[in-house]
């Protein structure tokens, strides 16, 4: 199958997936009740009037996890092509290919150990 056709099919999948919610919500518009009131439009907070907004500063640990995620996700991007072509590279370069990725993985594992020791991974 040519690559353009493959992505055309993915495009059709995308279109179908976007159209379903739009169609369902439009159909629902003719069926559902609509009696808006001031009370209904207030933010839910266990039955009492909400105090303040919710768009506030957030705990830093979420950002630390996000940073770790970026590091290891990028690592995964490098791992996939390496793994996919491992057999070819193994016969051409020899065991050096294992060593090179071992070095790369080693640095990241060191980083993980560092984060571990710095107690970044704790959730308090």
């Amino acid at each position: 199958m040519p690559i353009s056709k493959s992505f055309l099919i993915i495009g059709i999948f995308f279109l179908v997936a976007v159209l379903l919610p739009i169609a369902a919500l439009t159909l629902g518009r003719f069926l559902r009740a609509s009696k808006p009131s001031e009370e209904k439009a207030t933010t839910y907070e266990s039955g009492v009037n909400p105090i303040g907004g919710s768009w506030v500063q957030f705990h830093v640990r979420y950002y630390l996890y996000a940073l770790l995620f970026v590091i290891f996700d990028v690592e995964a991007i490098y791992l996939f092509p390496w793994a996919a072509s491992y057999d070819v590279l193994r016969s051409e370069i020899g065991l050096g290919i294992l060593l090179e990725m071992g070095l790369f993985l080693g640095f990241l594992i060191l980083g993980l150990i560092y984060a571990w020791k710095k107690k970044v991974l704790e959730w308090k």
């Binding site: 993915i10 997936a17 919610p21 159909l27 559902r32 009740a33 808006p36 439009a41 207030t42 933010t43």
Partner: peptide, 29 residues
Amino acid sequence: LIKEDTIPKNADKTLFKLSPIIAFVPAFV
């Protein structure tokens, strides 16, 4: 389907409507 559709007045309306679609589309794609 026949439940009333309520959007809180403090919500960001565009993103509020967009987010279920963003969550669903990749699941099917």
